[in-house]
């Protein structure tokens, strides 16, 4: 183990080498990491490190002492006095011989510093509290915004396509079938709107539930009292009770005397089999 080799004659890099390198400021990044680890593992080596630093700091004592110019001492003292005069009120206090005044000033300064620190601490606490309050408020507002967005989307989706309905109703030959719920859906009602020779129909309903995926509404057209119902397309309702679809048979547009809406299974063949939920006539 290189770290356990205290001999200065050891040719391998050891901790003495690292400590000397550190004191000289010449460690590579890798060596610095190694030394840091070493000092963490063996904190007692910090004392050894100190001896290397001390040894290096002794180097200038070997110099031949040189006397500074005779005037330097007075220049330094004069400059120190000038600096003291420039720095008020510290300089005033500094020049006074009384230690007690100095100590009082020091105490006052420390007290003032303590007050400032305490105020900073309180301010920081208040700021943190304020920040937390604002954050909570922000979260609440964001939740509200999300809810409002959701509601708006729902309302938009729920809004019947009045434009389309109005457009049909504007036509002088508009066909409007009033639909009433049958026994199985007596609370349901609605209106079926279309135009002669027009393949699209519009249903505006009330209390006509949205069907599960395996179910479907089917519209049947009855041309005369004795005619068999003609399949005129299938659809599912929307929450808004507003749905539009295209009829598959031209006969659907032949001004039937009656329309019937049934509920069928998706897989059922297009024959009038399921129970009627809405019936209407012009």
């Amino acid at each position: 183990m290189p770290f356990d080799s205290p001999s200065t004659s050891d040719p391998q890099p050891d901790w003495h080498d690292l400590l000397a390198g550190y004191a000289l400021g010449s460690l590579s990044p890798e060596e610095q990491t190694t030394l840091q680890t070493l000092l963490t593992e063996r904190p007692e080596l910090k004392a050894e490190l100190l001896t290397y630093q001390e040894a290096l700091a002794m180097v200038p004592y070997a110099l031949e002492p040189q006397s500074p110019p005779p005037g330097l001492e007075e220049a330094i003292v004069t400059a120190a006095n000038e600096q003291s005069q420039q720095i008020q009120p510290l300089s005033t206090q500094r020049r006074r011989p009384s230690k007690s005044i100095g100590q009082r000033w020091y105490g006052a300064a420390m007290a003032a510093a303590a007050v400032v620190l305490a105020m900073m601490g309180i301010d920081n606490y208040r700021l943190r509290q304020r920040q937390m309050t604002l954050q909570a408020e922000l979260n609440t507002r964001q939740t509200e915004i999300q809810t409002l967005k959701k509601n708006l989307l729902a309302e938009t989706a729920a809004k019947p396509d009045f434009e389309n309905v109005v457009e049909i109703l504007r036509q002088p030959n508009a066909l409007v079938y009033s639909l009433q719920g049958t026994d199985d859906a007596n609370t349901s009602s609605g209106s079926l709107l279309t135009l002669p020779n027009h393949s699209e129909v519009q249903l505006v309903s009330h209390n006509l539930p949205v069907l599960p995926d395996d179910k479907v509404y089917r519209l049947w057209s009855v041309a005369t009292e004795t005619s068999a119902p003609i399949f005129c397309g299938e659809f599912n309702n929307t929450e808004a009770g507003n749905v539009q679809w295209t009829v598959p048979d031209a006969l659907c547009n032949a001004t039937p005397v009656k329309v019937i809406i049934t509920v069928d299974a998706v897989i059922d063949p297009p024959v009038p089999k399921g129970p009627a939920v809405l019936e209407g006539s012009i």
Binding site: T8, D17, A20, G21, Y52, A55, L56, M58
Partner: peptide, 14 residues
């Protein structure tokens, strides 16, 4: 060399 020198110096001054 520099590290060796400081190690010697340290030993002598210790």
């Amino acid at each position: 060399r520099s590290r060796q020198a400081l190690r010697k110096l340290r030993q002598t001054l210790e």
